[in-house]
């Protein structure tokens, strides 16, 4: 599999993700939050750390040391959901019950699935995590849009950091849900999955770029 061109393309995306992770951490700690956008700056903190630590792990352990990715990708699915769920809850500053419900439902499914988890079927299980996460995040996105139009003040969406977070997350999860659900089946049917995984990687890059833009919009250069 490692002689396949698609493998090297996938690896290039891992380094790209590492660069995005470094940029996110760099911008987060070297720029000051805008006073009126302090909340938008705060909510992205768990995500920033996840991106940085996650990509560092992938480069060191998956790409360089060739450690099996199954354990990490399964754990990553949980961490990613928790980071997104927290981000939306803090952005909206309400719907605590919904936040807790989503956490409980996802965790219940996650823990239950671990009893059926094995290294051969981990892709399929992660597909289900992705599907549940997509549904929950779309609900959050709709609530955010609803909240947006209730406000008296009209601010252009392109000036709101939160818009970039929502745009990146929705496109990444909606576009990525089919690849994550189909990975196992594609591998069984074609013996190849890295080629099709490229779709998910491109969407991942898009999401990270949107997060970086959102973070830049929420901050200014430190004097």
């Amino acid at each position: 599999m490692r002689n396949n061109i698609w493998y090297y393309i996938s690896v290039s995306f891992v380094f790209q993700y590492l660069l995005c992770g470094i940029l996110l951490i760099y911008f987060y700690y070297t720029r000051s939050p805008r006073k009126e956008l302090y909340n938008e700056f705060k909510v992205i903190k768990p995500f920033v750390w996840l991106m940085f630590i996650g990509e560092l792990y992938e480069v060191i352990f998956s790409v360089i040391l060739f450690v099996k990715t199954a354990y990490w990708t399964t754990l990553y699915s949980l961490l990613e959901f928790l980071a997104f769920n927290y981000m939306f809850y803090k952005l909206l500053k309400k719907h605590k019950t919904l936040y807790n419900t989503f956490n409980i439902v996802f965790l219940t499914f996650y823990i239950t699935s671990l009893f059926f988890w094995n290294i051969d079927n981990h892709n399929i299980v992660e597909g289900y995590y992705g599907a549940i996460e997509t549904v929950f995040i779309i609900i959050w996105a709709i609530l955010w849009f609803k909240d947006l139009f209730k406000k008296d003040e009209v601010v252009s969406l392109w000036r709101m950091p939160a818009f970039y977070y929502v745009l990146g997350t929705v496109i990444y999860l909606c576009g990525g849900v089919i690849p994550v659900l189909f990975t196992g089946h594609l591998f069984k049917a074609t013996g190849l999955w890295t080629k099709y995984w490229l779709v998910f990687l491109i969407l991942g890059t898009f999401m990270r770029i949107m997060m970086i833009i959102g973070l830049l919009k929420a901050t200014v250069k430190k004097p």
């Binding site: 996105a141 745009l167 929705v170 496109i171 909606c174 576009g175 849900v177 089919i178 690849p179 189909f182 089946h185 594609l186 049917a189 074609t190 099709y196 779709v199």
Partner: peptide, 24 residues
């Protein structure tokens, strides 16, 4: 069956992306 799965993959992804971009 392989080709069917690949077609479903591309069509499904395209529809989901269309819906997501459409919503935005």
């Amino acid at each position: 069956q392989g080709e069917e799965v690949v077609s479903l993959f591309y069509i499904g992804t395209a529809i989901m992306l269309f819906l997501a971009f459409g919503l935005m």
